[in-house]
């Protein structure tokens, strides 16, 4: 990993911008700073991005660095990996991570293994980014959470911000990182507003953030469900249950030390993960906690995941399928033997 500088957001100027603006700001600043960085994907240039993340970037950087691609994920992902191997630093936008599945061979079989298989001759400094998880009635095939599937592969880094500030800080770090970074955004969060520092802003990988302090139960989450956890924690506080909410920010590397520190204090842990439960980051956290915190636990690590079915289309079913605040509250009460 390249050297990162942590800048305390409270020390620099911030203003309220949307999650999508924070992503664009990080990409734009890095493209001004480093001519090797370029963006490619479907509709990123002339249409200003399917979700307007790359709005205005074609005007500033021109068609050599903001590249519209055919609808061919396997082709443009593979091309970008080749560019990365040869020294450029591509950012690949998948309109949805659901569509990355047709590019599984280049992104899983080539990019993460390249440094290892070439004996160190070729690295792969590339960022794959796009919308992950249920976007709201998009149906099962367009609602993929790839955390469980892709985090299984050694050699890649997986980043999943939950707020605009982290979106900028983590994206900047991702572009400067020398390894392939899988950057998971959420269509549901692109319009979320928050204070974001101006200028260079980097959030280091592998450092969880305590989003709410508490004493009775540790809630571990990442990405969009962190916000569900904060809602649940506010609800549980009314019942006298004080939850500590940890935002992991990166799944690989996983900041298990911060989780251990919190669980040693609370003795209870609920992991909230929007991927399916079987073989997921949530099950990995539970497994590592049982290894490191066995004597500190008063109950097994509870997990709240999306239901173990294909994502439903119906609005009410989709809401119930997600690890929503009510389901988190129920898990916390059960974990604390207060159900």
């Amino acid at each position: 990993m390249s050297t990162v500088t942590v800048i305390d957001p409270t020390m620099s100027a911030t203003r309220e911008i949307e999650f999508r603006d924070a992503l664009r700001e990080a990409m734009t600043q890095e493209m001004r700073r480093d001519p090797r960085v370029f963006l490619l994907g479907e509709e990123v240039a002339q249409y200003n991005g399917a979700y307007k993340v790359s709005k205005g970037m074609l005007d500033e950087f021109g068609p050599r660095r903001i590249i519209d691609t055919p609808i061919s994920e396997s082709g443009f992902a593979g091309m970008a990996i080749g560019a990365a191997m040869m020294g450029l630093r591509p950012i690949v936008e998948f309109m949805s991570w659901s569509f990355s599945l047709v590019a599984a061979d280049p992104i899983l079989n080539n990019a993460p293994k390249m440094l290892y298989m070439s004996g160190g001759q070729f690295g792969c400094p590339i960022v794959f980014r796009g919308n992950d998880g249920a976007g709201g009635q998009l149906g099962s095939t367009h609602s993929w959470c790839v955390e469980g599937l892709f985090s299984n592969v050694p050699g890649l880094k997986m980043v999943i911000p939950s707020c605009p500030e982290d979106a900028k800080g983590l994206m900047t770090t991702a572009i400067r990182d020398d390894d392939p970074v899988f950057f998971l955004e959420s269509e549901r969060m692109l319009g979320m507003k928050g204070h974001v520092p101006e200028g260079d802003y980097l959030v280091p990988f592998g450092q969880a953030k305590v989003r709410r302090e508490g004493t009775d139960c540790t809630l571990v989450s990442f990405g969009r469900p962190v916000n569900f956890c904060l809602d649940a924690a506010a609800e549980l506080a009314k019942e006298g249950i004080s939850c500590e909410v940890l935002d992991m920010r990166t799944i690989r590397p996983l900041d298990i030390d911060s989780i251990v520190r919190s669980v040693r204090k609370t003795n209870y842990c609920v992991v909230v993960d929007q991927s399916w439960s079987f073989g997921s980051p949530g099950s990995e956290v539970a497994s590592q906690l049982h290894q490191h915190c066995f004597d500190d636990l008063d109950n097994f690590v509870h997990r709240v995941h999306s239901a173990d079915v294909p994502t439903p289309y119906a609005f009410n079913l989709e809401q119930e399928y997600l690890p929503n605040a009510r389901r988190i509250c129920e898990a916390v009460r059960s974990c604390l033997y207060r159900a």
Partner: peptide
């Protein structure tokens, strides 16, 4: 007995054999 309860029983000198657990 839960792991943390076992550890606390040792630290606080509580005889777990005399306890009736309230957990499942």
């Amino acid at each position: 007995i839960s792991p943390v309860a076992r550890r606390m029983a040792e630290e606080l000198g509580v005889d777990i054999n005399s306890l009736r657990g309230s957990g499942p």
